[in-house]
C-alpha cells in the first residue's frame, strides 16, 4: 500500500508529532518503503488463524483490592516541568 503525504501528516497529527515539510517528505519516503516491506504479509494466507497478542497463552492474574500506595507527590513532581499547588500545569484547555 503506497503512502500519501496526507497519511503521514494525519499519523503525525494523531501522534502529536510536529513535522516540518522536509521531515514530512522524508518520512513519506521512509514509511513508504517500510510499508512495502511489511506488505509481504499480504501474500500469506492466514484464513482461520487466530491472532496472537501474547507469546504465552497466559491469563490475567487479579490483584486483591487493597490500598498499597502512599503519597509520594513530592517525589513524583520533582521531575515535572511545571507544577503549582500540587497540580501539573498545561496551557489553558478550552472546553
Amino acid at each position: 500500500m503506497a503512502l500519501e503525504h496526507a497519511e503521514v501528516m494525519r499519523a503525525a497529527s494523531l501522534a502529536r508529532l510536529g513535522l516540518n515539510d522536509d521531515e514530512a517528505a522524508r518520512y513519506v519516503d521512509d514509511l513508504g518503503r517500510i510499508l512495502a516491506m511489511v506488505d509481504q504479509l499480504q501474500s500469506l494466507d492466514t484464513e482461520g488463524v487466530a491472532p496472537l497478542a501474547h507469546p504465552l497463552d497466559a491469563t490475567q492474574r487479579l490483584r486483591a483490592d487493597e490500598v498499597t500506595e502512599t503519597n509520594h507527590r513530592d517525589d513524583f513532581q520533582r521531575c515535572a516541568p511545571a507544577v503549582e499547588k500540587g497540580l501539573y500545569l498545561v496551557p489553558r484547555v478550552v472546553e
Binding site: 503549582e84 499547588k85 497540580l87 501539573y88 500545569l89 498545561v90 496551557p91 489553558r92 472546553e95
Partner: peptide, 15 residues
Amino acid sequence: KSLHEDFHGMTGVDL
C-alpha cells in the same frame, strides 16, 4: 480532572 481556575492562564491537572 482539569481545573481551569487561574494559574496564570494555565490549566491545572489533578490525577
